[in-house]
Design a binder for these strands. Structure first.
Lengths: 240, 240
DNA sequence: ACTTTATTGTATCAAAATGATACAATAGTA
DNA sequence: TACTATTGTATCATTTTGATACAATAAAGT
């Protein structure tokens, strides 16, 4: 049984840019795991990235922001474009049509939504704890999944995650400050954990500390009372 | 007076992907100048990058290759996607309509070609001497222009060139082998010239040589008889 | 034929960045 | 009070990078 759903967003001629969509790869970090935000669409198909279409009045970046908010309840995240996916068969195929047929809406057989479109990929790295994933009406759930343990995803979304991860790794140092990747306040170990999880390799603690401190992007706060049986580490936060 | 032109490519419903285009930023290198390939469209408007639309049957990469061949006569170049441009007003504006009105074709007022579309930018760096720029029927000329001396370009093509150049710079080392940037055989000075032109900064000759040789991507050939009054430099070519 | 000139190939040294190890400091625990 | 685990920092070796020196040499000048 399906609820009534406002699907005007999918209608042709309602101010959407034909043939174009955006998809968001949102990385989160928790329990030393790198997570990615996925929707479980209604019906029992593969999970997918939060994505949607572009309104004629908005830029691609704005579309990505809006789509992320509408479909996953995530707002105010700085998204960056990383690649545009346009293989001819990436959407104009059986799987895709099957997906749209699970949505209770009449679509013209010639509607561009049922045909091929190109998707512009955006990604972000965000503080896991600050985001409350909220599924939209088309989805049963919206949750975090371990990037290194993903089941098969819908369409070419697996490839999207892989390429986003590659981009994330290469931009980690330069874009570090831009990412809202940790709680307001954190220890050096937290940050190293994050790095190691993203890069999927171990780093030398002492040299990592030196490197990060030399970047001059952290502000050192007073000490932390961890409750652990060892010297209490400093707390840091990012400089403005 | 305008010749008869086959413009079926611009018709709606002829197998084109709506709202999507590709544009190619082709860099060439000659006389210590970094050049970019531009078309002078018929009518007296600003020059533009070779660009066009995507057929339903082809991938974005294939579209870029084909468009480049059709519009500029350049073929067999390895193109790489660098960014997708989608500002809402980048095409759906007066300038854009004026441009398409110079083309002798009846376009439905509602045709997507007259509206907004998104353009996927591709770039390449190629051997200036191996390319014979050939304008298509829509253009008066197709030629190389100094990247650092560009006049105003059509649409957002100036921004495209800038961003492509930025990408080129950042990928120069890693993608060097992939580019067909120099003649088959060249000297170390030729290569340094290329680097300096792209990066727009002077490099220390001795250290440049050391760095490049350490990359192990060059094969050293026999000596060159330059005819210059100095020690003859080695010739190199890229390893396969 | 010898010298001069411009440029090339390589060596060398200094400085900076990076990798690896040592060790004292300390919050909690035994 | 001693012990344990982890932290912050110092130190040294290694590698990379920046800068300079210099011998080799193709052609031109004399």
């Amino acid at each position: 049984m399906q609820n009534k759903i406002d699907l005007t967003i999918f209608r042709h001629g309602t101010g959407l840019l034909p043939s174009v969509s955006v998809d968001c790869v949102i990385f989160g970090f928790h329990d030393s795991q790198l997570k990615v935000l996925l929707l479980q669409p209604k019906g029992s198909y593969n999970k997918m990235l939060p994505g949607g279409f572009v309104q004629l009045s908005e830029s691609l970046n704005e579309a990505a922001q809006r789509v992320l908010q509408e479909r996953a309840g995530v707002k105010e995240i700085y998204l960056e474009q990383f690649y545009t996916f346009g293989a001819p068969n990436r959407t104009d195929d059986t799987i895709h049509k099957r997906y749209f047929n699970t949505i209770p809406i009449d679509l013209d057989e010639n509607d561009w939504i049922l045909k091929r479109f190109v998707s512009i990929g955006y990604y972000a790295l965000t503080d896991f704890t600050k985001v409350k994933p909220t599924p939209d009406v088309l989805s049963d759930s919206c949750d975090w999944y371990d990037v290194y343990q993903l089941s098969e995803l819908a369409f070419d979304h697996q490839e999207m995650v892989e390429r986003a991860l590659k981009t994330l790794r290469s931009k980690l140092d330069s874009d570090l400050v831009g990412f809202n990747l940790l709680p307001e306040v954190f220890t050096m170990q937290d940050l190293q954990n994050l790095y190691e999880t993203i890069l999927n390799e171990a780093l030398l603690r002492t040299n990592f500390q030196r490197k990060i401190l030399n970047l001059n992007i952290l502000e050192r706060l007073e000490k932390k009372m961890t409750g652990a049986a060892n010297k209490a580490p400093y707390l840091y936060k990012f400089k403005k």
